[in-house]
């Protein structure tokens, strides 16, 4: 038996909304330690990795008697989650050898209980080993700022060059019709931690990435006030959205490599 009771259905809604356009079908791997999801986009350029820890406060109840994999079409899951109110408590339930995933939505005042079943899919997805590495540079910034940068620069070109150095981080685009550059300096005088830009630098990095994917990742902006960008030369960038009381959602994007 698997049963996970999440206090905020809005969190699950936001996660699925941010994934469903790039990642059509995905396996939720459930174990006693929590729920993980790893998936590649169809072009094998981007990878997402979701971790929801069972011992965090976001779950009111969590039970997973044996490890199970729930293969789900994320478009369908998005439709089901639209049937939940934002303040509803959502319970996910499945048997040990499941064909069906059940969603139960409880309204805050317990006056309305709705239940939906969806058929599970057999998804043959390739799991990749994500190496645990120290990155040359980790940029922490407000998530809405990163969203704005990606959106602004995508109007002029397809790829952004991210340049991390000791003063801050530069985002540059050069297209056929024009070019643009946004410089972010490290902030020291901002009151709120979530408004700060910080750059932890071991080594400077200059790397180009496809804006199409970065813009898609920023659909997760509402999950978190801040976003962390981890970069090392000639390796995928990690775009991480911490999820309060649950864990995190990370996106990995392969760099553009000079031919």
């Amino acid at each position: 038996m698997f049963e996970a009771k999440m206090l905020q259905s809005s969190v699950l809604k936001k996660i699925i909304e941010s994934l469903k356009d790039l990642f059509a079908d995905a396996n939720f791997d459930c174990s006693s330690s929590g729920i993980t999801l790893q998936d590649m986009d169809s072009s094998h350029v981007a990878l997402c990795y979701l971790k929801l820890r069972s011992d965090e406060e976001g779950f009111e109840d969590y039970r997973c008697d044996r490890n199970i994999t729930l293969g789900v079409n994320l478009g369908l899951m998005s439709k089901i989650l639209k049937c939940a109110g934002n303040d509803d408590v959502v319970t996910l339930r499945a048997e040990d050898e499941p064909n069906i995933l059940t969603f139960i939505f409880d309204s805050k005042n317990s006056e309305r209980v709705s239940k939906y079943d969806i058929k599970l899919m057999e998804i043959d997805s390739e799991l990749l080993g994500i190496p645990d590495t120290d990155y040359s540079c980790v940029v922490k910034m407000p998530s809405h700022e990163f969203q704005r940068i990606c959106s602004n620069l995508s109007q002029l070109g397809d790829s952004v060059t991210i340049d991390c150095h000791k003063e801050g981080v530069d985002f540059k685009v050069a297209g056929e019709q024009g070019s643009g550059a946004i410089k972010l300096k490290q902030t020291t005088s901002v009151d709120k931690e979530e408004d700060q830009v910080t750059v932890q630098l071991n080594e400077p990095v200059t790397q180009s990435f496809a804006l199409k994917f970065l813009c898609a990742f920023t659909k997760a902006t509402s999950l978190s006030d801040t976003v962390n960008l981890s970069l090392t030369q000639d390796t995928p960038v990690v775009v991480e959205y911490p999820i309060a009381q649950h864990g995190y959602l990370r996106f990995y994007l392969a760099p553009k490599i000079e031919e």
Partner: peptide, 14 residues
């Protein structure tokens, strides 16, 4: 010119 790398070039199959 830049070529788009594949994530599979960096992360090997588990």
């Amino acid at each position: 010119t830049n070529k788009q790398g594949s994530i599979k070039e960096f992360f090997k199959k588990r």
